[in-house]
Design a protein around this nucleic acid. Structure first.
Lengths: 144, 144
DNA sequence: CTAGCTGCAAAAGATTTGCACCTCG
DNA sequence: CGAGGTGCAAATCTTTTGCAGCTAG
């Protein structure tokens, strides 16, 4: 994990940004909560435990910064808040989400069977595909 | 269109809801703007032209009511507001969206090549798929 | 040093809610 | 008539912004 923090620091510095203690702590929290789809507020609460003086605005600003630098990516489950997850969505190891409409549980789907569809779309619409996001709605094994 | 309005009226009445003039006008606007991804505010502006006395709260309440009764469905493009479109997403004629990251244009993708993936997901995760939503990000033919 | 950061509080947007009055069925 | 609807304004919730002081490099 130390290594990742150093890498991120370099990535930011290469773009004239600084790796402040606050940013480092937010990064740690994101790393400790992979696959958790944290909202800005969630991150704020977790970060507060390590650094009580941090401000909510800093969390928002940092997450947006990380988003631009593809350190995190975001998903929107339609519940009125943006959620963030560690990892670059353009690196190809993006997963999809299956959302249970009864219990609200979110499963990670790690298969990527969309290549065919992407090819089709670039052919038919002249669209260069950079990323995709798939949400599947239904009932999980426990709820049906 | 008259026919659709009557059908919706019956659907609502069957559930103890009323088809008021306001709701009817909102429905008309949705029908006249299929495939347009209107935000609540967009709908409000369009509805105002036909019925200037309508309130924004009514538009919100009505769209949520239509959503529950599967008269409209909603999409979220991550721009901080919910968008609505006429049509039931569970009927199978859902389309997908290709979003251009340069000009913001949204293309409708009408192919449905996700059946394979859905089968895979029900097999591997015991998840009953009811609906899905796919967004593709990239550059459209004009922007690349 | 100084451009970039931070915390705080205020502002901005989107959506929801309380309430007194109105209306569909 | 009465349950459900409506408009309005106020309230709520998430996210953004202005600003004076702070700090990484």
């Amino acid at each position: 994990m130390k290594k990742i923090i150093t890498q991120v620091g370099e990535k930011l510095r290469a773009n004239e940004y600084k790796l402040t203690p606050q940013r480092q702590i937010i990064l740690e929290v994101m790393l400790e909560n992979k696959d958790k789809h944290l909202s800005a507020e969630d991150v704020y609460i977790l970060v507060k435990r390590k650094a009580p003086d941090i401000g909510l605005a800093t969390v928002y600003r940092t997450l947006e910064l990380f988003l631009e630098h593809e350190i995190v990516h975001s998903v929107n489950f339609g519940d009125g808040r943006k959620r963030y997850e560690y990892g670059d969505s353009t690196e190809g190891h993006h997963h999809h989400h299956a959302i249970c409409l009864r219990c609200g549980k979110i499963l990670e789907i790690n298969e990527d069977l969309l290549e065919e569809l992407e090819k089709q779309v670039s052919k038919d619409y002249g669209f260069t595909v950079l990323d995709h996001e798939l949400k599947i709605f239904g009932h999980c094994s426990e709820c049906k």
